[in-house]
Design a binder for these strands. Structure first.
Lengths: 224, 224
DNA sequence: CAGAAAAGATGCGTGCACGCAAGTTTGCGT
DNA sequence: ACGCAAACTTGCGTGCACGCATCTTTTCTG
């Protein structure tokens, strides 16, 4: 149930009651996770607490999230992966694909709400939360693969998947460097006045994605 | 202790007694894990059993491996990641870097001993073991980054890391397709006479790594 | 409209997985 | 040779994380 199989086909019948209740439960869990983590500190929240706040049992919690950390970071990333794919799909086909992907990633990772900055600050203070946050980048692969396959042609399905997965891993590297720069547990924990310089993140993302541009160019124009 | 920080500098003083005992413990644990998994089936082995067979406590087991599955697959992969990096480093610098990496990967993933084939068959029967096996590809990044940085020049450290991580993720995709082709839990569990067609793996690996070749070429010859 | 099938929620039991503290072993410097 | 620091081992307690079985809710079909 946690593995969300994403399909490029966005025209689908309106979801039924069961599907709507599932989404509502998922959102309730991740909002509760983040709210409690911010209120009590990340160590003061147990799965039992989150489940109770969301009105479900701890067993149900584990049907949705495999760990405490996953729910907390889910509140931050909130479907960012599908938004990245949608942003790439929305760009005109004459835009260089490598540029389209890069700008979509930069756009989605810097349009942060105030609430999210607070959550990111929280995430930097714990190793398990940082790892879970970095792990969310794997969610970029499936939706982006679908968009790239459509753009490159279905015969390039393998290429689409490799390129999409490489984008995900480049994003992970950029975020890892970014979070390292904000201070690790040893330096960042308990530190006061620490701010996340989001101005640096676009440069890190562009720098991490740049080495992949030739691969995108070659896939887009195989005759060269 | 589980995160093994790999250094390209291979000339180092001979390890001390403590280091040798750590390595011996790690090897004892992974050999015990695999032996017990083969003897009793993967579901018949507990961490307590593995620890006892290796002569350490369960707590010590978790100092070395974060899960039951990690020890089992560690017996299969057995430092393959460092061997890949060493194989790339050993190739003459006039060999195209993309080719060097591809051939090193293919070589290290197909030189399998009979014992390993038995373990791979076991791995295909359980989802958790397959996921853990795929996760081992992340270990390719650090050693390969060091080799690529040396080859491309230290100013390209970021590029080296992105390319190495992309190789790791391409290998993961190839292995995922390969394991899917050998049958999933539904089809493979309990199936008799199922063989892993290792002849197909080189093609899958080459196919997965091919889209990254232009990125390697551009990094190797930036003036073009 | 009613019954069957599918999917979700939950309790229970089991096996972890990890932080912490205390004890032991190894390495290093004098 | 000895003392101290670093690293490792281990017991203990706590909070999971998951498989299984059972019950409930939603969807689908005749």
């Amino acid at each position: 149930m946690r593995s969300h199989l994403w399909k490029a086909d966005t025209v689908s019948p309106p979801p039924g009651l069961r599907e709507r209740k599932k989404q509502a439960t998922r959102e309730a869990l991740r909002e509760a996770a983040l709210r409690l983590a911010v209120e009590r500190g990340p160590d003061g929240v147990r799965v039992e607490d989150i489940a109770e706040a969301a009105g479900v049992s701890p067993r149900t919690y584990n049907n949705y999230f495999a760990s405490r950390e996953q729910a907390i970071v889910a509140a931050v990333t909130a479907d960012r992966e599908t938004r990245i794919a949608a942003a790439v799909a929305a760009r005109p086909t004459e835009v260089r694909l490598a540029d389209a992907v890069t700008e979509a990633v930069v756009e989605q990772y810097t349009n942060t709400r105030e609430h999210e900055r607070e959550a990111l600050l929280l995430i930097t203070t714990r190793t398990a939360l940082r790892e879970a946050f970095l792990d969310t980048t794997t969610g970029i692969e499936a939706p982006l693969t679908a968009v790239l396959a459509e753009r490159l042609g279905d015969t390039e399905a393998r290429t689409a998947r490799v390129l999409a997965a490489s984008v995900a891993t480049a994003v992970r590297i950029a975020l890892d460097e970014w979070l390292q720069g904000t201070g690790t547990d040893a330096a960042g924990a308990g530190a006061t006045g620490l701010l996340i310089p989001s101005g640096a993140l676009p440069d890190l993302l562009r720098g991490a994605l740049a080495p992949l541009a030739p691969a995108f160019d070659a896939a887009e124009n195989p005759s060269r």
